[in-house]
Simulated scan of single mutants.
Amino acid sequence: MNIAVLTIQFSLPGCASLKEKRQRMGGLHERFGRTPAIAVCESGHLDRLESSEWSFVVLATSPQKVESICSEIEDKLQRTVDGRVLEVSRELL
């Protein structure tokens, strides 16, 4: 089994409340948590309004599949989150 941890930090300029922050992040649990190969959680910046950090644990049978899933997650987040990606890190376990 191949495992990667993908951590993405977002900037949410102008975010004025935790409710707005949740709306702008657009239900990442619902979108990615349904896939059996992905576990997702908000892993940092929980108390900050203008930033957010999310971690995704990806499991697959090959390193290429893990990389492919991580790339799909990054691409989808770039298109759907009402914010700016500041940093992306991948750790293969």
Score class of each variant (00 low, 15 high):
1 M>K: 05
35 T>F: 15
79 R>N: 07
80 T>A: 11
88 V>I: 15
23 Q>H: 09
13 P>T: 08
88 V>S: 08
90 R>A: 01
61 T>I: 01
67 E>Q: 02
71 S>N: 11
27 G>C: 10
40 V>M: 02
92 L>N: 12
12 L>N: 03
8 I>G: 00
53 E>C: 11
28 L>W: 07
73 I>A: 00
65 K>Q: 13
24 R>L: 12
19 K>R: 13
21 K>M: 00
86 L>A: 05
36 P>A: 05
15 C>G: 09
80 T>C: 11
44 G>A: 10
85 V>K: 08
50 E>Q: 11
8 I>M: 14
91 E>K: 11
88 V>P: 03
29 H>P: 07
90 R>I: 04
9 Q>A: 15
7 T>H: 03
34 R>N: 12
37 A>W: 02
80 T>H: 07
17 S>D: 00
9 Q>R: 15
89 S>A: 08
51 S>P: 04
51 S>E: 10
58 V>H: 01
35 T>G: 02
32 F>D: 00
59 L>C: 09
33 G>C: 09
56 F>N: 04
44 G>F: 04
40 V>A: 06
87 E>A: 15
3 I>V: 14
88 V>R: 13
9 Q>E: 15
92 L>R: 09
51 S>V: 03
76 K>T: 15
36 P>C: 07
75 D>E: 14
78 Q>E: 13
25 M>V: 13
19 K>D: 04
16 A>W: 02
11 S>E: 15
49 L>S: 02
65 K>L: 03
6 L>M: 03
77 L>N: 02
43 S>W: 00
81 V>G: 06
63 P>H: 03
18 L>F: 14
87 E>H: 12
82 D>N: 10
76 K>N: 09
36 P>L: 01
